[in-house]
Design a protein around this nucleic acid. Structure first.
Lengths: 369, 369
DNA sequence: TTGAAAGCGCTACCAG
DNA sequence: CTGGTAGCGCTTTCAA
């Protein structure tokens, strides 16, 4: 591929405005509201005056709390609408101690965060779904990398956190507990018994894939997993091991470096094919890893799915676009995100846990198997 | 493609927690900090006591404002660190009138928002880059759909807004001006002369594409654009028209429905190929439209690029994965996002405008041309 | 260079 | 069912 720059200018680069953690956003005199609109932004005092009630009544009427006469409530709400009043979140938060804001923390750390986001349609869909669900719940969602320290978490100033792919003894989980931030994880924390998580049943999904491959004639399925210690990889691995044991088939597992999964998968697959125990199918779990398997098969002159059946553990547009199109597990990230937000809202509301919320997995059967 | 559900459970669906706009997040007694950790979250009063100074001094020392003795400042900062103090954003915001938070508003409206996000790697990269840059600037970023009304905008309670793809006389632009919310747009607002935007030079990029196609032997280039009234489509269209006029070639333009651009593009291309003025190249601007062109060419039995050269106006993984791989414009959304945040931070800081910030475009030449 | 005090807008508490 | 009032944690203003 050739890259050709269409237009290169001397452009205006603003100065970098990096701020050290712990420092603060300082204001100039007056806010923009005051500067632009004549007069102040309306407060409940203005609404109270207009409706002929007290601020207490306005507060209760607008929040739905308290026992307020329906007629009074209607009058107050109309006055608020007329005045263009909107609650000032900062004031609510300061008084109530709850900010009405949650954060979505996706892996990995800050450094390669944007890269991950950029390459994983799973993350992208999950993010969009969480944001949409949060707004529907009347809250606000921040998008943030995993906080590395207590101060970073505190600096978020959120009521709750959605944490994706917690690891065993996850520091973020510990920090949330210490800081009193409500937490819901997407996928369970390995080794934890917390009921506050949503996820897929990766054991069932893996069995489904393996049964599908067997049905399509595969007799020796290799598993490409990741080196990370995530519950979904553990679960898939465990289900695979058990499935192999049930059939007396020797397990064939390779753990891939998750930084460049496609390349790592290509390398691992080539090695596997060159060795004695040549598999006739591969389940490639990490995002994009299946593309590497395809490349290795092509390099080895193998037909997919004739000589080698391939299934991806995470679906994405690349799987549908690949030739042959790759059979993949649709983990339904949009559904996961919506459910995760709903659960976090329940937790924030003080409701008791109802157990993990499992989202069904779809196997999208395409040409590669 | 066959879809096979791997596991279906009776799962726990929490109640839907939709909240009507204008209602508020109400708290129960006490916040989690208080409930979980023994004692209160430290305040500047605690830090002041520990450091033996007043709260005023702590405030000045931590914010970097005011004239504070360096020794005093160091002592205060150490005390703050030791106490684990973090500024409470709500209190800062209430007092200063600035929340330290910005919002990224991406098109279109609420209804199909998650869908767009899901399918456009451009949006995804832009989003990730904005979030990362915002955090680096010590601020927080909300992800939100375009506010439809004033109350929705006010409900965001943000200092500034990043607005993607403003339309002519954009209501959000008007609302921001009225509400005193600082605004930076990604791409200019058609008809506006505001200098507060970042974007690509779509005229230059379009000329670059057309020159490239001409060089590759194309003599009749069709343009597939969108029905939306976005500046980038206007600019590309204008550059195309001028380029055609310079060569005395008749322009061949079709506007596509942006909801299903690939299908619309396939349809439009088929019609174009069936008509007399059969083009030998197509520049398909809307996201994914080029894939439809490819499908139409295949259906017509045409070789790409032999009979028909194809270029996509927006790059994405689908373009690289397509067969043949599609030559595409890389609008460099990650760069756009970083620059947009930097510009918004400058505007929030009261700095004067330095003019639009243009990001260079790369033409990624692949097999389709 | 530092401190005292007011008050941002709202909700919790309690009295009527 | 409604109102008065205190005060959340911080920044700002003004005085020392």
């Amino acid at each position: 591929m050739v890259t050709q720059r269409c237009c290169t200018f001397a452009v205006n680069h603003g100065p970098s405005h990096a701020v050290t953690p712990g420092s603060r956003i300082v204001g100039t005199r007056g806010n923009l509201w005051t500067m632009v609109t004549r007069g102040r932004r309306p407060t409940i005092a203005d609404v109270a005056r207009a409706a002929g009630v007290s601020v207490t009544t306005v507060s209760a009427a607008m929040s739905g709390k308290g026992r307020i006469d329906p007629a009074t409530r209607a009058r107050v709400q109309e006055a608020a609408r007329a005045a263009g009043w909107t609650p000032r979140r900062a004031a609510q938060a300061l008084r109530s101690g709850r900010t009405g804001t949650i954060a979505l923390c996706i892996p990995p750390d800050r450094s390669s965060w944007a890269d991950w986001m950029r390459h994983s349609s799973y993350l992208q869909q999950l993010t969009a779904a969480c944001a949409a669900a949060t707004i529907d719940a009347g809250r606000l969602m921040l998008l943030a990398p995993r906080p590395a320290e207590r101060v970073e978490l505190a600096g978020l100033d959120v009521d709750g956190l959605l944490l994706l792919d917690p690891v065993r003894a996850d520091p973020v989980v510990r920090m949330c507990a210490a800081a009193g931030v409500a937490l819901v994880t997407v996928d369970r924390e390995p080794g934890s018994t917390s009921p506050w998580w949503v996820g897929n049943d990766h054991r069932a999904a893996t069995r489904g894939v393996l049964d599908h491959l067997h049905e399509r004639g595969a007799r020796s399925v290799a598993l490409l997993t990741g080196a990370e210690r995530w519950a979904w990889l553990e679960d898939a691995h465990a289900a695979y091991a058990q499935w192999c044991a049930e059939r007396g088939a020797p397990p064939l597992v390779r753990a891939l470096d998750m930084d460049r999964p496609a390349d790592a998968a290509a390398h691992a697959t080539s090695a596997l094919l060159a060795a004695g125990e040549r598999p006739d199918a591969v389940l490639a779990l990490p995002t994009h890893a299946a593309l590497g398997v395809l490349a290795a098969a092509r390099a080895a002159g193998l037909d997919v799915p004739g000589d080698l059946r391939v299934v991806a553990g995470v679906d994405g547009p690349e799987m549908a676009a690949a030739r042959p199109a790759v059979t993949a597990l649709d983990l339904r990230p949009a559904e996961l995100g919506a459910r995760a937000v709903a659960m976090l809202v329940r937790r924030l509301g003080g409701e008791p846990p109802t157990g993990p919320d499992l989202v069904a997995t779809d196997l999208l059967v395409r040409a590669s198997s």
